[in-house]
Design a protein around this nucleic acid. Structure first.
Lengths: 150, 150
DNA sequence: TTAATACCTACTAATATACTAGGAATTGTA
DNA sequence: TACAATTCCTAGTATATTAGTAGGTATTAA
């Protein structure tokens, strides 16, 4: 197997958020449409988007013609925010989740902690430097035809 | 839970390799000593070090007074090599494990792949830029007394 | 000869993953 | 007002992974 991997929660959730970003300013998008466009199980995505709603990343409109919209402009939501809401903190080992030096029992003799810290910082730097708007812009650059599908 | 995390295989394995690096040039170190110094289950570590032996990172000497040594100088073994041997490739999602563009069925419409690629490159860059020698040097700088424990 | 070591295969409890099942509540539209 | 489209909610489940443990055999220095 491979490691430092994301579960499908983060993957699917980010793809769903991308669809909402593409649709931003054009009213709510139903789960059915989002799931259909990204080929994700609708019922499973429902659970993921519930998490994002509770975290304040998306807003919902109930009833017929309802759906979901981003709660902020795409430029104000980072990939890191989305992934961390769905997956929890991004860190290779537990002892570097918090930046404050929460020492484990072997802390004085741990030669590896500094490495885990660097990995963590590097991962988060990548995902925090990309917004949903960046994703949409990049995608439109490569697929100018995609707008007509929406 | 937290994500992009390493299992204990990578963590324990790297700590064991650190001990072998500290001891480099002074003959073999037994599993018992390594496990004892790093507070790891000896029997479990045995399985991890077997993987590293098969991968050519360590050499073993059987029988009484036997043990393990690094098969190359600490400066020639990177943290990335150790972790990848024990955990497999370091990549957040499967579709970026290989650099060649192995496209999934939705490849033309995947707005996230470039992000996973950046995460992967960033993680590997960190671990590949640190050698076991770097770890030992850093540690000795902070704990000059540790040499006497060996 | 013996004690210390490496080497090997199999088993297991606990946990997480990626869903599915089945419905209740809400709301725009005919 | 009825109804269809939607969100919202709780619970179950098959599979895989993790982090070991159990119980040995083979090798070698003293």
């Amino acid at each position: 197997m491979f490691k430092v991997r994301l579960s499908t929660k983060g993957q699917y959730g980010l793809r769903a958020m991308f669809e909402l970003a593409v649709n931003y300013g054009q009213g709510p998008l139903s789960l059915k449409v989002v799931a259909g466009r990204q080929l994700i199980s609708e019922h499973y995505l429902e659970q993921l988007i519930a998490t994002m709603r509770k975290a304040g990343l998306v807003k919902s409109t109930r009833g017929a013609q309802g759906g979901y919209t981003l709660s902020r402009p795409p430029a104000e939501i980072t990939v890191g925010q989305v992934i961390r809401v769905l997956e929890g903190p991004l860190a290779p080992v537990e002892c570097v989740i918090d930046d404050n030096e929460q020492v484990c029992d072997r802390s004085g003799y741990c030669p590896t902690r500094i490495i885990w810290k660097k990995m963590k910082d590097s991962i988060n730097q990548v995902v925090d430097s990309i917004t949903l708007k960046d994703m949409v812009d990049d995608f439109m650059k490569m697929h100018p035809d995609r707008i007509s599908i929406s």
